[in-house]
Computed example of a mutant assay.
Amino acid sequence: MKKQWIADASLLAVTFIWGATFVVVQNAISFLEPLSFNAVRFWIAGICLLIWLLLFQRSSLQHFNRSLLYAGFWMGLWLFSGYALQTIGLLYTTSSKAGFITGLSVVLVPLFSFFFLKQKPTANAVFGSIIAAFGLYFLTMERAELSINQGDVFVFFCAVSFAMHIIITGKYSAHYPTLLLTIMQIFTVAVMCSIGAFLFEDAPNMWNGAILAKRQVWTALLITSLFATAAAFLIQTNFQKYTTAARVALIFAMEPVFAAVTAYIGAGERLSVSSIIGCIGILCGMIVSEIPIFSWFSKRTLTQGNPRT
């Protein structure tokens, strides 16, 4: 139980990092296109972790094999798919709708856990996920149209990809060395983002000194590569083995909450009543998932039904 609480707290810290860097990334991609930005970000993160491996954990290389390569590739594939599909979807839909649809992975993860891992989610996890989904709606969908377009479809499959990334990480993280698995995952994303940038963006800008020298770009790359990528995915890969996929999805649902709060504090953005209700809803979803309300209710019912107890 103690390891689970430590894992949940560590993953919540990762979610805070992702949410807090949202504004920084938004500023950077106004100069460097999304796939190009992520390519550079993941290359830097992967190289930093590789240097750390060679300097301090070279003995881990004896565990490198085809199975680990396969596991890291699949984790990276789903992670890249999430980023790429979200980027494509944002060309055709609004940021608010994309944020809500992406957040629906909080509902998809318990469902996928049941179908692919045969893990039956607890009633608390299901109820907490539903509450969090409603919270996401209030946080992201204020004044947004309810119609569906092709961008929404792309973003929905982005949510599927992020949900599958959580599922796959939970499956493999307990069987392979954390650092090696994280490095393989990150380099997979770096390679795929680079290919995507060459196909769909002005890829040479990735190494354009004038663009990279802009303060908004190099600070965003430094912060996201070291903290939001290298450290974040290392922590997720290491700690997810101690908790459930459904709990991870609920914790990650806090990302737009942290993004909204940091935007309010750092950028002076206004938090509407709907946004505040949404933040509270997501927080309540997390709390409900942690408190065994249904277990207490069942025990109380059994106790009342048995006079000898």
Rank of each mutant, 00 (worst) to 15 (best):
G266R: 02
G266N: 09
G266I: 07
G266C: 09
G266L: 14
A267L: 10
A267K: 10
A267C: 10
A267R: 10
G268W: 05
G268F: 05
G268I: 08
G268C: 07
G268S: 06
G268H: 02
G268R: 06
G268L: 10
E269K: 01
E269Y: 07
R270H: 14
R270S: 13
R270L: 11
R270C: 08
R270Q: 14
L271F: 04
L271I: 08
L271K: 03
L271H: 08
L271A: 11
L271S: 12
S272T: 08
S272E: 11
S272D: 09
S272Q: 05
S272P: 03
V273P: 03
S274T: 02
S274G: 05
S274L: 08
S275L: 02
S275M: 15
S275Q: 14
I276G: 01
I276C: 03
I276W: 02
I277W: 13
I277H: 07
I277D: 11
I277Y: 05
I277G: 07
G278P: 06
G278N: 03
G278C: 09
G278I: 03
G278S: 07
C279Y: 00
C279P: 15
I280P: 07
I280G: 06
I280A: 10
I280N: 03
G281I: 07
G281W: 11
G281V: 04
G281N: 11
G281P: 10
I282Y: 10
I282H: 04
I282V: 12
I282S: 00
I282R: 00
I282T: 01
I282D: 02
I282G: 00
L283Y: 04
L283V: 11
L283A: 01
L283T: 06
C284A: 15
C284G: 05
C284N: 06
C284S: 13
C284E: 07
C284V: 04
G285R: 00
G285A: 08
G285D: 10
G285M: 01
M286R: 01
M286I: 14
M286F: 04
M286G: 11
M286V: 14
M286Q: 15
I287V: 14
I287C: 06
I287K: 01
I287A: 11
I287Y: 05
I287S: 07
I287F: 06
V288Q: 03
V288L: 04
V288S: 02
V288I: 12
V288N: 02
V288T: 12
V288K: 00
S289Y: 00
S289D: 13
S289G: 09
S289E: 09
S289A: 15
S289Q: 14
S289W: 00
S289F: 01
E290I: 01
E290N: 06
E290K: 00
E290W: 00
I291L: 15
I291S: 12
I291H: 05
I291K: 05
I291T: 09
I291V: 14
P292H: 01
P292L: 05
P292E: 14
P292T: 02
I293T: 13
I293G: 10
I293E: 13
I293N: 11
I293K: 08
I293M: 15
I293V: 12
I293Y: 12
I293S: 11
I293L: 15
F294L: 13
F294R: 08
F294I: 09
F294D: 14
F294T: 06
S295W: 00
S295M: 09
S295D: 15
W296S: 12
W296R: 14
W296G: 12
